[in-house]
Design a protein around this nucleic acid. Structure first.
Lengths: 168, 168
DNA sequence: TTTAATTTTCAATAATTACTGAAAGTTTAA
DNA sequence: TTAAACTTTCAGTAATTATTGAAAATTAAA
């Protein structure tokens, strides 16, 4: 397979996979494009390669910057902005984890705790409900703690720790 | 807060949170409803509580069964079907993890490996591309392995192993 | 069998989400 | 300054995804 063909295949595959992860297709494609680019790309470059509008590029690049996985880069002699994606995949994983944790897990914990606290009733049914809320909190907290450690870890450490843990 | 009110609040909150996880809102609400029900529920019960159509109930209950987190239950003297959700939250977490792994992670690995293999070119650019694909595979494989262990673990073991690991 | 109860399917439609493109806003070079 | 280059915004529209509801299929009691 030609390199360019492989790059495009990666970009398009990534776009469709993203959908199942609850991530906007175009956002995933823009990120994929920047990830396999050797050079920083301008809005025009992205528009042309992905065949999307300027507005769409702007919105999605902005979202990627907001997620902390793409940054602006200045190119000498050029007035317009260029964008790059960090090529360190472990960093990428950690950053995405950090953001999803903040956006998608922490709000869950808040609601679960609130619901347990607010029910005063002392019936058996209320106890069962509180237990479910409590168990949900407990599992979510465990996962959250593990993700916290992953975010702070370097890849090698994480891998080796898990290997040890798993062998036990 | 009244117990019934709290249950409804949980059901609705869960529905909106699900959206950000790439999960259908109604599917999440049906599951939440079954999770906080003390009794098995019929399609009618679900229709009334969530104010949705019979077709919608049927499709989403079916999907939940397919995910392995809801099951049919027969009620003596009743001809129609009733549904229940397993109340063990750790089991729920493992089952969801298992399914998402199968549906959303394993296909990624397949594509990444394919793309590395298929590029013959020996330029510097091709090497860079292969490195990105390889790093993506490597991180994904690590995560996949961890999830595999989690799926087989019981909650207490996982929690204590992680605690030990983290303290080190 | 027949028929009534129940479940399933799926075309039509509604709701949601994403995208376009042009106008408004901002920046920088002359 | 001013004007060209560039970026941002957002109302309108397109594309996608979810839901309805009624007809078809299935099941089981009479």
């Amino acid at each position: 397979m030609e390199l360019q063909e492989a790059k495009l295949k990666y970009i398009h595959t990534w776009g469709s996979l993203a959908t199942s992860w609850g991530i906007n297709k175009t956002m995933a494609q823009v990120h994929a494009l920047l990830l396999v680019s050797t050079e920083p790309l301008s809005a025009e470059d992205i528009m042309e390669t992905l065949k999307i509008s300027r507005g769409n590029v702007n919105m999605n690049v902005r979202a990627l910057i907001d997620w902390g996985i793409v940054s602006k880069e200045f190119v000498v002699g050029e007035r317009k902005e260029f964008f790059v994606a960090d090529k360190d995949i472990w960093e990428l994983f950690k950053q995405v984890t950090k953001e999803r944790k903040k956006r998608e897990i922490e709000p869950v914990l808040k609601v679960l705790e609130e619901l347990q606290k607010d029910v005063q009733e002392n019936t058996e049914e209320a106890a069962a409900f509180k237990k479910v809320m409590n168990d949900l909190s407990s599992v979510t907290n465990t996962v959250n703690g593990i993700l916290d450690k992953a975010i702070k870890a370097d890849e090698h450490w994480l891998l080796s720790s898990f290997t040890k843990m798993i062998k036990k």
